[in-house]
Simulated scan of single mutants.
Amino acid sequence: MFIHNISKENSILNTFISEIRNINIQKDSMRFRRNIERIGEILGYEMSKSLNYVNSTVETPLGTCHINLLNNDIVLCSILRAGVPLHNGLLNYFDTAENAFISAYRHHKHNPESFEIVVEYLACPNLENKTLILADPMLATGQSMVATFEALKPFGIPKEVHLISVIGAQKGVDFIENNFDDKTHLWIAAIDDKLNDKGYIVPGLGDAGDLAFGEKLQQ
């Protein structure tokens, strides 16, 4: 797997990462969603450099311009509900992409420290020979990303797969590296060292879905 940790180089991305982590700033749900969206835009821009381009001609009012334009059939899939702001950020740049949505959540059977990933709702176009962008803001254990990809397999075999995350734990990065093809790309804004006993990233930022859309009732 090709791992692109964008935080290794200083950029304005650091500002948005610091704000979604900050316990005071992140309480502003609207700003939290917007920062996730902006991070998605930056990750999408960095990812776009690795895609395919074709030379095209554009007619301007004063003449002809030759320019290389994107030549990928993109399907953008986000994991609900936390993935919605990240999806919007990516869609701002890949505005002609087809879209897929899938729900994947942690189901705690017996105690808070034990869970399984449950996939329920799924809407997806044909993936055959297309570029799949799979977006999930928090890459904790990596199980949600793998479960989602397995659920998408009946829709076709993508030509290439790009995974997009905002913050990941090293354990989750290692897990998906062992469960995705060697040609898969991971684009991530920051990688933290560890998970706590409940499977949350430390230092992380908390529950991205709750911060973006409000706390949910536990099932």
Rank of each mutant, 00 (worst) to 15 (best):
F175V: 00
G206L: 03
L205V: 01
L132N: 09
A82T: 02
I17F: 04
Y45C: 09
V146I: 15
M47S: 13
Y45F: 15
A104E: 00
I74H: 12
Q219I: 15
L51M: 14
I67R: 00
V146D: 03
R34K: 15
V202T: 06
S50W: 04
R31Y: 01
E98F: 13
C124H: 07
G89I: 10
F149C: 03
R21D: 01
K194Y: 06
I74E: 10
I191K: 07
I23D: 00
Q143A: 11
N35T: 08
G83S: 08
I79F: 08
I102H: 07
H185C: 13
A140F: 07
G142L: 08
N14E: 11
S7T: 10
E37Y: 04
F155Y: 15
E160N: 14
R34L: 12
A100Q: 05
I20A: 01
L122W: 02
V84N: 05
A190L: 13
N129K: 15
P158C: 10
Q26N: 13
E113K: 15
Q143L: 13
V161S: 04
W187E: 06
V119R: 09
A82M: 06
V202N: 00
F175Q: 01
F32V: 01
E160G: 07
A135G: 05
V173N: 07
S11I: 10
I3H: 02
V161E: 05
E113V: 12
N55P: 04
N179V: 05
L51Q: 07
I36K: 11
S7G: 14
L132S: 08
I20L: 03
T148N: 06
I117N: 05
I157N: 14
A97F: 10
D181C: 06
L80I: 14
R106E: 08
N126H: 04
N178V: 00
T96S: 13
L186M: 09
P203F: 04
A140Q: 03
Q219M: 14
Y105P: 07
F155M: 11
I3F: 08
L13R: 06
N179F: 09
L43E: 04
N72E: 15
G206P: 09
V173L: 12
Q218I: 12
N111F: 03
D197N: 05
V146Q: 04
L80C: 12
L186R: 05
L217G: 04
D210Y: 07
I102S: 02
G172N: 07
E46L: 08
R31D: 00
V75G: 05
N178L: 08
C65M: 14
K153L: 09
F175C: 01
N52C: 11
L80S: 10
F175D: 00
Q143K: 14
I117D: 02
I133K: 12
I17H: 00
N52D: 13
R81G: 01
S103L: 11
M145E: 01
Y53F: 15
K194A: 05
Y93V: 14
D28F: 08
C65E: 04
A147G: 05
L43T: 07
D192V: 11
S103Y: 11
I67H: 00
N24V: 02
T141P: 10
I74D: 11
H4I: 13
L76D: 12
Q143S: 07
A135D: 05
I39R: 00
G204Q: 03
I39M: 08
